[in-house]
């Protein structure tokens, strides 16, 4: 039915999902939580809290542009570009599609748990819970804003693993709620700097859905980081990968009205 939007939507899904991966995350096999210990859970929670403290920007604004290049076997590459405006202190962000032209003007505004999707073709605002899929794209928006995994997941240590040559602690997250991006995730947290380098997203049944690799980070304020390169691999669509770059990063103050329905409508086609 959504013929007109399907191809771009698929791209956006891939693109955003790639981005999403960065936020979402993992589980290598659906292994059972370690019997043991509240201490293990505390350690896992401490690891999550530590990297969230580095990835969240509680003071000041952040705007950046994500370019997503999707590769799929037998098809030409697709490119999508989105501009993000982020204010973690208020737990809000706005996302506007800039490219391709057919998607331009589409956007999202999230304010805490409230997420609005704006569809320029019908002038509609669709209200959604932030942890739900975005439209029909299977894209989760929590990647772009403030990260707060422990409010949605129980964390347990799931051993250690080597990602490339890095030693990582593996934290398994099991959803506490129904309406989360992924029921199970595994985050591979690099020892030394405590930042995630790999995330695996699983279905409730333990099927691997997606793997994301954080290839590069950039320090945007003292002790605060944002990823600038990410690779997401779709485990269901063989040969489908999305490479995401993040640039035009600015910490300049963003006008308040950017976080409103009015801004989305102003950007409309």
């Amino acid at each position: 039915m959504n013929l007109a939007r399907r191809a771009p939507a698929a791209l956006s899904a891939i693109v955003l999902s790639l981005a999403v991966h960065s936020l979402a995350a993992q589980t290598s096999a659906a292994s059972a939580p370690q019997p043991g210990a509240a201490a293990t859970a505390q350690q896992a929670a401490a690891l999550v809290t530590a990297f969230q403290d580095k990835l969240n920007l509680d003071n000041g604004d952040l705007s950046d542009t994500f370019t997503l290049v999707q590769k799929k076997d037998g098809e030409p590459d697709r490119v999508l570009r989105v501009r993000i405006y982020r204010r973690d202190a208020k737990d809000t962000f706005t996302l506007i599609f800039q490219y391709p032209a057919s998607e331009k003007g589409k956007g999202y505004w999230r304010s805490k748990d409230d997420l609005y999707l704006y569809l320029p073709t019908t002038r509609e605002f669709v209200y959604r819970n932030r942890k739900d899929d975005v439209g029909s794209t299977d894209v989760r928006t929590d990647l772009f804003g403030k990260t707060d995994l422990l409010s949605q997941y129980d964390a347990t240590l799931d051993g250690v693993a080597k990602v490339a040559t890095w030693e990582t602690d593996v934290v398994r997250l099991d959803a506490k709620k129904l309406d989360v991006s992924y029921p199970i995730q595994k985050w591979y947290i690099r020892r030394g700097d405590g930042l995630p380098v790999k995330v695996e997203n699983f279905s409730a049944g333990g099927v691997l859905l997606r793997t994301s690799y954080y290839i590069e980070y950039k320090e945007i304020a003292k002790g605060r980081y944002i990823f600038t390169k990410l690779l997401a691999v779709d485990a269901l669509e063989k040969g489908q990968k999305t490479f995401l770059t993040n640039d035009e990063i600015s910490t300049a103050k963003i006008p308040d009205y950017t976080f409103s329905k009015a801004f989305l409508e102003e950007q409309s086609r």
Partner: peptide, 13 residues
Amino acid sequence: PFDASAFDAAVGA
């Protein structure tokens, strides 16, 4: 950059 296996196997090598 789309070669995930290369990343998994060699990143940081």
